[in-house]
């Protein structure tokens, strides 16, 4: 138990400190690296409570893919400069009320969820009945997702697909005058298309470019 709590407090301390550092660090690329550290320590916490599938998926999806895109954007665009201008401007206090409202909302949501746990102890029982020790985490998750909640699951997949297609349609533009390679054209080129043998007459030469 002692080892367990040592690991728990280590990971949660790293998670909280890196979450603060995401907003506090001056360099935007550093904040993304702290965000990655945060994701990793949270997935460690997931693994510690026995949700190893969720923890691994968190690592693969958030750290392996989403955060890479974050890093790309932050490195390619000069976000740091923009951010400094934004905070140096006098009207920066305009954003504070919006941020306050959003953070209060999130705080209230968390309070509701936690108080729900506290006053409805049977929620724990439902969870425990689903996770028998013989059935692995992945199996029980799949059993719920692909039976009771199959429609919700499929709809969320469709929403993601629509979002992806939408993003592609929005950013897709066809520029005129771009030289494209056609693989079929390149492969199906014959010797007779490219090479021609000519008899060259003395003192006359040949025209090549027509």
């Amino acid at each position: 138990m002692i080892a367990h709590s040592i690991f728990f407090y280590t990971f949660s301390l790293i998670a909280i400190v890196s979450a603060i550092m995401v907003t506090a660090s001056k360099n935007t690329v550093h904040s993304v690296f702290f965000l990655i550290l945060d994701f990793i320590s949270i997935s460690c916490l997931f693994i510690m409570i026995g949700a190893e599938f969720l923890g691994m998926i968190m690592l693969i999806v958030y750290v392996g893919a989403v955060a890479v895109l974050f890093l790309f954007v932050v490195m390619m665009l000069n976000v740091a400069q923009q951010k400094n201008q934004w905070f140096a401007a006098k009207d920066s206090s305009k954003h504070i009320p919006v941020g306050l409202i959003i953070s209060t909302l999130i705080f209230v949501e968390i309070i509701i969820v936690i108080s729900g746990w506290k006053y409805k102890p049977e929620i724990f029982d439902i969870n425990n009945s689903l996770t028998q020790p013989s059935v692995s985490n992945t199996h029980s998750l799949g059993q719920i997702l692909y039976t009771d909640y199959i429609h919700v699951f499929q709809i969320s997949g469709m929403i993601l697909l629509v979002a992806m297609i939408g993003a592609i349609v929005l950013t897709f533009r066809q520029r005129a005058g771009v030289k494209r390679q056609s693989y079929i054209k390149q492969i199906s080129r014959e010797r007779s298309d490219g090479v021609e043998v000519l008899e060259v007459q003395t003192n006359k030469g040949v025209r090549i470019d027509d």
Binding site: I36, E52, F53, M56, I57, L59, I60, V63, G64, A65, V68, S136, N137, T138
Partner: peptide, 18 residues
């Protein structure tokens, strides 16, 4: 000998890009 061994391998190899 963990339950999600292959996912662990996949996750670690996807972290390699960092």
């Amino acid at each position: 000998d963990i339950n999600v061994g292959i996912l662990y391998l996949f996750a670690v190899s996807s972290l390699g890009v960092y």
